[in-house]
């Protein structure tokens, strides 16, 4: 993560929306970076700010509604300062996005081919014919049989998996350097999920692009990502390599996430433990550590810090691994060791 020239660098990003009920602090001081050829997984429950972050990178927020501060450097350019026309050049060309539900993300009235051609033509001054050739090539590349015929079909005529492949083909038609995949496999069944992830990894290797994988599914992260960023209440609570975060998580929230995921290798009868309570309101975040009302280990009362101070994201002993938690590092390590002794969540 400490690369000198990461393709994407997000620095202290804050995104706020003014609503009638108050100011929504959707993202509150998040920083991270992704290199080409690498994959960053962003994990969190809904409302944790992960999707807002990704839309900020695409510059898709309405600037009149969303107040954004910090920096988002794409290939060294801060897109927060880019005018709309310049932004459009970035979108779809350098950074592209794969959405969660391809059925609703694809236009129902246009053929798949048409939609891919359109994506290509925006950024290439070539003939329609050439764009179509390119579209069919891409469909073929993502593994859609009879691509020329399928190009003339509508999204509703595709199966779920095929639709997501088509969506990927559309996102990759311009060879983007950064792909943001927002829950790309959530709407799909498990076998198809694996195929799609394989395809993404495949393509990443081929084009050497950076990927941000947004998901609430740690299983997906462990399969595909190099680094992980865990978000809660609009803030980063833990970040590090997959290896370190998944094996030696140090934030109680990450523990909660891990224990709510069925393990592929675990006992089928093992209890899944959901995290108690609900994600916090982004208008009225709990004081101190946003996670403290749901945290089993919160240190409260008598001037103890969890509901008083926002914990800093601090590097732990392990290299590249940071955690924002008031618990002393040693205690965190011990507690987790005891926990997995009981349940064997992490393998």
């Amino acid at each position: 993560m400490a690369d000198q020239n990461p393709y994407l660098q997000v620095k202290d990003l804050r995104v706020q929306f003014k609503t009638e009920d108050g100011v929504v602090k959707a993202v509150d001081g998040v920083s991270f970076a992704v290199e080409r050829g690498k994959t960053l997984g962003i994990v969190g429950e809904s409302g944790s700010g992960k999707s807002v972050t990704s839309l900020s990178i695409m510059g898709l927020h309405n600037r009149k509604r969303a107040a954004m501060t910090g920096e988002i450097l794409v290939d060294g350019r801060n897109i927060l300062n880019l005018p709309e026309e310049k932004l459009r050049e970035v979108r779809g060309q350098q950074v592209s996005m794969i959405f969660q539900d391809p059925l609703s993300a694809l236009h129902p009235f246009y053929t798949i081919g048409h939609q891919i051609v359109e994506a290509h033509q925006v950024h290439h001054k070539v003939s329609k014919k050439e764009s179509r050739k390119r579209a069919i090539e891409m469909l073929d590349r993502v593994g859609i049989p009879q691509p020329a015929k399928r190009a003339d079909q509508y999204p509703h005529e595709f199966s779920g998996g095929m639709r997501q492949r088509a969506m990927i083909a559309m996102s990759l038609v311009n060879n983007p350097n950064l792909i943001i995949a927002d829950e790309p496999t959530t709407a799909l069944d498990v076998t198809v999920q694996a195929q799609i992830l394989d395809l993404l990894l495949d393509l990443q290797r081929e084009f050497n692009s950076a990927i941000i994988m947004i998901t609430h599914d740690l299983g997906v992260i462990s399969q595909i990502a190099d680094d992980v960023l865990v978000m809660y209440g609009g803030r980063a609570v833990e970040t590090g390599t997959v290896e370190s975060v998944m094996r030696r998580p140090q934030h109680p929230y990450t523990w909660g996430l891990l224990s709510s995921v069925p393990s592929l290798h675990g006992d089928a009868n093992e209890d899944l433990v959901p995290i108690k309570g609900n994600p916090p309101s982004l208008i009225n975040l709990p004081s101190g550590c946003a996670f403290n009302p749901r945290c089993r280990y919160a240190m409260l009362g008598d001037g103890r810090p969890c509901d008083l101070e926002i914990p800093q994201l601090l590097q732990v002993q392990e290299r590249g691994h940071s955690v924002a938690c008031h618990l002393p590092e040693q205690e965190r390590v011990q507690t987790y060791q005891q926990d997995i002794a009981h349940s064997g969540v992490a393998q």
């Binding site: 060309q93 592209s96 996005m97 959405f99 539900d101 993300a105 694809l106 236009h107 359109e118 994506a119």
Partner: peptide
């Protein structure tokens, strides 16, 4: 507010 409109914008359309 539909997803496909967001997609269209994400493509870089005017």
């Amino acid at each position: 507010s539909e997803d496909f409109v967001r997609t269209a914008r994400a493509k870089g359309l005017t």
